[in-house]
Computed example of a mutant assay.
Amino acid sequence: MSGLHRSSSAPLKNALPPQELLDDLCSRFVLNVPKEDRQTFERILFLVEYAHWFYEDNTVEKNPSLKSLTLKEFTTLMFNNCEVLKPYVPHIDDIFKDFTSYKFQVPVTGAIILDQTYERCILVKGWKGSSWSFPRGKKNKDEDDHTCAIREVLEETGFDVSKLLAKDAYIELMFGKQRVRLYIIAGVSDGASFAPLTKKEISEIAWHRLDDLQPASDEVISRSVTGLKLYMVTPFLKSLKSWISKHAPHVASKSDAFHRGFSVWKSKNSSSGSSSALVDNQHTKLVSNPIVADTGPSDNRVAETGPGKSFRNFRFDSRLIIQAMESGFSA
C-alpha cells in the first residue's frame, strides 16, 4: 500500500498509529485469544477487524491527531508491525480478498419491526452513506439465529425484541452464498423508544411506510418510489406483504397523520429530513407464523456498517397539537 508509512516524529494531524499502540492492539486482539481463533486467516482477519473498530471508536476519538484508516489500511499496518503476522505480508492482498469473500458468506439475521397498523416498519440508516436497511447483522460462531437477531436489533436500535420474537415467524432469502433471515416483530407501538447502543454505526432510525418503499426493481440496492436508497430491503417486501395480508389486524381508518413515516432518532452527523407523526397508542396482539421466501437476488454488496455507541435525540410529540386541530375542524 503505497504512501502508508508510520511516522516516528512528534504527533501530527492525521499521523499514523505509533508502534507502541500497534503492539498493544496486536497483543490485545490477536495474541491473547484462544488458539483455535488463530488457526485460519479468516478468523485472524476478524480479530484484526475488531482491533480496527477499537482503534476508530476509541483511540482516534480520544486523539484526533491520529489518522482514521480503512480496514485494508489498518490490516496492512497490523501485518507489517505485528511479529506473528509479518511473515504473511507478501500475501496480504490475497488474504484480504479471501476474507472479504468469506465475510459475505456468514449468515445474517435481524428483524422487520412493524407498527400496530402493520403499515410501517423500522429502518436504520448506516453511519456512512445514505442507504436504509432493516436492523440486522452477522452471526457469531455457534450463535443461534434468533439470538443473533435479538442482539443485533438491540445494538442497532436499542429496542429489545426478545419477548416479542417468535422463532417460527421469519422471512429468509439467499444473497449469493449468504443466508439472510429476518424475524417479523409485529404490533410495536410507534411511541416506543429507539436509540442505537453502538457508536458510529447508525446515523438515523425511522418508521417508514411500506407503501413508500415500493421499488423500481428487486435489486439488493435500489431506490423506492419516493427516492429512498434501500439496501437488502426490496427483496423482502413481497413476502412481507403476503405475511401481513394473512395476519394484519382490522384497524379503523384514521387520518393520514397517523400513517406517515417519521424519524425517531437521529445522530448529529445526519442531515436528512423527516416528517413528524401522531403517536398511535392502540395495542395489537402479535401473531406469529412463518413465511419463507423461495427466491431472491444473487447480488452481493457491501453493507454500510461499523460498531460504536450513541445518544438518543429529543423527539417532539405533536399529539396534543394535532388533536386540538382536529377538534377545531370538527367543531
Rank of each mutant, 00 (worst) to 15 (best):
A10P: 00
S224C: 05
E119K: 15
K238P: 01
D190H: 04
W207R: 04
I321R: 10
F54M: 03
I291S: 12
L182S: 00
K86W: 07
W265H: 11
L320G: 05
G176L: 06
V161F: 06
L278H: 10
P18A: 01
A206M: 03
V225D: 11
Y88C: 02
K246V: 11
L16Y: 09
H208G: 03
Y102I: 04
F96E: 05
K200L: 11
A248E: 10
E119T: 15
F41S: 08
Y102F: 13
S263C: 14
L114Y: 09
I221R: 15
I244S: 08
S7Y: 10
F74D: 00
G126M: 00
E83M: 11
E172G: 04
L71S: 08
M174Y: 12
P297N: 07
M174H: 10
P196R: 05
Q39G: 03
I184A: 01
I184D: 00
V108C: 09
A15P: 00
S2A: 02
D144P: 11
T100K: 14
N300F: 03
P290L: 01
Y102A: 14
C121W: 05
Y183G: 03
S270V: 06
L25E: 01
A169Y: 02
N289K: 15
E304N: 14
T70F: 02
L47D: 02
T100P: 02
S288C: 13
F329L: 15
W53K: 09
H283Q: 07
P34H: 13
A51T: 02
D144A: 15
H259S: 10
A324V: 06
D218Q: 15
E83L: 13
D294A: 04
